[in-house]
Design a binder for these strands. Structure first.
Length: 284
DNA sequence: CACCATGTTCCTTG
DNA sequence: CCAAGGAACATGGT
């Protein structure tokens, strides 16, 4: 469930549930997700610490942890990769097949499940240094955005996935933002005009903010192994209501009519990833 | 069997 | 040094 809006909604959901809970036992079933932290260091550091805060940066979950004696705080960094999930599970419930890390908090376990194991849960925070501005913050201004785009010959769609340019945009919202801005995904980044840069900046912010709002107002079910989390797990789970349908306007909708002009949505491959767009609304 | 999938990192080439 | 392209990672769905 991994782009900025999904991570933001998860952080808001999980933060209060974890607050002040102490890690009693640490069980790592896939040490690979700790990379580059060693299993020993991870286990020794986490055991006995408590959750003191949770925030988001780009697609990363930033857990603030505290220890009692000696009184100290440190950061635990999480990334969901393509298929990661994090949730609390009563201890009597069976762990999912692909539980990568399980932190026992007493009556419940904090589970990091990840089918493909592309995600991470680590003590190494260096990844944060490489991130560009938060698209929803004021620091994300059109001037700086434009400067960064000017240096690239890559198609704008590909550039939007560059986390050092803007943090948190992924394959779904890159297509959605370009559609909203009426800009062709093939346009070279350096060819965007000043007005297009402003339009794209606004479209990005709107698309991301609306997705967060949508995820915050819909009853989500993050708990339970394999349980649908409704809106935020891409690929419809059975029982997910219809309002989910209207949320994405072009992503994964090749062949469907464009919601603006009715012509067929097209699929294109760029940098080995699918891009969806309307060739009529996004000309040039 | 084929191809596709919400992401990042590493390696190579220019 | 940098930009860009491609493979790799690992598992499951269609």
């Amino acid at each position: 469930m991994p782009e900025l809006p999904e991570v933001e909604v998860l952080a808001r959901h999980l933060g209060p549930l974890l607050e002040n809970k102490t890690v009693r036992e640490v069980s790592v079933r896939r040490p690979k997700v700790l990379r580059p932290t060693s299993l020993r260091k991870f286990t020794q550091t986490l055991r006995g610490s408590r959750f003191a805060g949770l925030s988001r940066r780009g697609k990363y979950l930033v857990f603030t942890m505290r220890t009692a004696r000696p009184a100290r705080s440190f950061t635990l960094l999480g990334h969901l990769g393509m298929t990661g999930r994090m949730y609390l599970l009563p201890v009597n419930r069976q762990l999912p097949k692909h539980a990568a890390v399980v932190l026992n908090l007493g009556r419940e376990n904090f589970v990091f499940e990840d089918t493909r194991y592309f995600g991470r849960l680590t003590l190494d925070v260096r990844a944060l240094e490489k991130l560009g501005p938060e698209p929803l913050a004021e620091a994300f201004d059109a001037k700086q955005f434009g400067q960064a785009l000017k240096r690239s010959r890559q198609p704008i769609k590909v550039k939007l996935l560059d986390q050092s340019l803007v943090a948190g945009v992924g394959n779904i919202y890159a297509s959605e933002a370009l559609f909203r801005a009426g800009i062709s995904p093939r346009l070279a980044a350096r060819r965007l005009k000043v007005e297009q840069i402003q339009t794209l900046r606004r479209a990005l912010r709107e698309v991301l903010a609306e997705a967060i709002d949508c995820g915050s107002t819909v009853p989500l079910n993050f708990s339970g192994a394999g349980a649908p989390d409704g809106l935020f797990y891409f690929g419809r789970a059975p029982g997910v209501p219809d309002y989910y349908e209207e949320r994405l306007r072009v992503y994964d909708r090749a062949g469907h009519p464009c919601p603006e002009c009715g012509s067929g949505i097209k699929r294109l491959v760029q940098a080995a990833r699918s891009t969806y767009y309307c060739s009529r609304c996004q000309a040039g």
